[in-house]
Nucleic acid binder design. Structure first.
Length: 424
RNA sequence: GUGAGUGUAGCUCAAGGGUUAGAGCACCGGACUGUGGAUCCGGUGGUUGGGGGUUCGAAUCCCCUCACUCACCCCA
């Protein structure tokens, strides 16, 4: 370490942040609960690399999408390859399926994954440049029952994490057969009333008329209410799929709202699209977004394998979750003298192998200072090893919560701690 | 990428052109050498985000820049 203070402080780069131990505990719990629930539904973890060839996302996410055109972290590696930090997870899974011929395994395939994604966005509430997603995918299952099942599974997880007041929005975005006709009709309707729209929406009328639906300007809202709805343009196949999807949602008793203006951001979606939104998230109110992508694998040059999945933003999830932090219970060793220190080290080593969390600090202090320290760092137990204890061969163990003190051998006291630990 | 707001101690905030930038909490130590939490006393900690300008004098006013926050866009 240099003696001079660095002139410029180093800090985490824009849109990224450190998750400090206290918060990391919450993450661990949320992740463990997600894994547990997904496993109950037959999902298995599939870990793909964080970096991928840039063209994977150009092909999979869509070369014209905002994500690919302006939000990717792309660089050239030393071999001259164009590499991108993944902005989403689905293309990686599709690549892995094709690469390892996972489609030859018994279908359907159910995968989950939790990890960081990267988008060069402007950070704001619930939106970061490095953010984390809980992601699940099902491949090779056409039945709309699975569409409803993943929504039900998402609800189960949200409930488990104490997320309240969620609203589930559902829609069908059609397929390659019926979507073009709708797009045409919508564009036509938007052009017809273009003069009445705000400048922003006039621009949208040309680029992406669907976005006019969520403008806040009153005149735009009025105009938008006269626009055609995608649900009126669905082909028989898509219509049937959507109806069955809703039927299964009803079967599960899931409260949902059909939102004909709901479109997923990415180009590859077909049929089912859904979003789970909640209050208290500001403008980024979606905690979960998902949908079906029946053409994606084939368009990648893979087999004709349909897919569906959802992603949850972990940061958003945790900002509305209510997770209780479990109290960690550990033993603090209050020793005196070199002999007491060595006895502490030996005892801690033994106790740890029994599964007891032990903390020996390498500082000889007075007993009062030891207790003060133990209290400050939140020890549940203090084991006293001083001259008296060493000569007797029996130690004093104090419970810091109820102030009761016990005397016994190492084995007796270890048993006592383990027994009490099970009670709580 | 566009717009607005905010940057003072580890945290929450005072000082609003005029001595040496303060307080609470936190941290360290003492009162207290075999038993913690309480109380009291003391201490460490700051180029006021950074740079430039105005002024006799700037945390305070102006410009630039960076970061954070919120919104637009887009999205988890």
């Amino acid at each position: 370490m240099s003696q001079e203070q660095p002139k410029k402080e180093l800090s985490a780069i824009k849109g990224t942040r450190d998750i400090l131990p206290e918060e990391a505990r919450i993450w661990q719990i949320a992740e463990a609960q997600a894994k547990e629930i997904f496993t109950l539904y037959g999902y298995r973890e599939l870990r793909a690399p964080i970096i991928e060839p840039t063209e994977l996302f150009e092909k999979g996410t869509g070369a014209s999408s905002d994500i690919v055109t302006k939000e990717m972290y792309t660089f050239t590696d030393k071999g001259g390859r164009s590499i991108t930090l993944r902005p989403e997870y689905t293309p990686s899974v599709v690549r892995a399926i094709i690469e390892h011929r996972l489609d030859l395994q018994p279908l359907p395939l159910r995968f989950y994954y939790i990890g960081p994604m990267f988008r060069y966005d402007k950070p704001q509430k619930g939106r970061y440049r490095q953010f984390h997603q809980i992601d699940i995918e099902v491949f090779g299952e056409k039945d709309p029952a699975v569409d409803a099942e993943i929504v039900e599974m998402a609800h189960r997880l949200l409930k488990k994490l104490g997320v309240e007041n969620v609203l589930t929005l559902v829609n069908s975005v059609g397929c390659k057969k019926c979507r073009p006709a709708y797009g045409e009709a919508l564009r036509k309707a938007a052009q017809a009333v273009k003069e009445k729209l705000c400048p922003d929406c006039q621009r949208k009328a040309d680029i992406n008329p669907l976005r006019i639906f969520d403008c806040k300007v009153e005149t735009c809202r009025e105009a938008a209410s006269t626009f055609p709805k995608i649900t009126d343009y669905l082909c028989p196949d898509c219509r049937q799929h959507f109806q069955k999807f809703l039927e299964y949602l009803d079967f599960y008793g899931i409260n949902y709202q059909v939102e004909p203006t709901l479109v997923r951001g990415l180009d590859y979606y077909t049929k089912t699209a859904f979003e789970i939104v909640t209050e208290n998230l500001g403008a980024q109110n979606a905690v979960c977004g998902g949908g079906r992508y029946d053409d994606m694998v084939r368009e990648f040059g893979g087999p004709d394998l349909c897919g569906i999945g959802f992603a949850m933003g972990v940061e958003r999830l945790l900002s509305v979750a209510r997770i209780e932090k479990p109290r960690d219970s550990f033993v603090y060793f209050a020793y005196m003298g070199e002999e007491g220190k060595k006895q502490s080290l030996a005892t801690a080593r033994l106790w740890r192998s029994k599964g007891i969390e032990c903390l020996v600090e390498f500082k000889d202090r007075g007993l009062k200072a030891h207790f003060s320290r133990a209290n400050k760092i939140g020890a549940d137990w203090v084991l006293i090893i001083g001259q008296d204890e060493l000569s007797k061969g029996k130690f004093q163990l104090k419970n810091m919560l109820d102030s009761k003190q016990y005397e016994g051998t190492s084995e007796e006291l270890a048993e006592l701690i383990l027994k009490q630990g099970q009670k709580t």
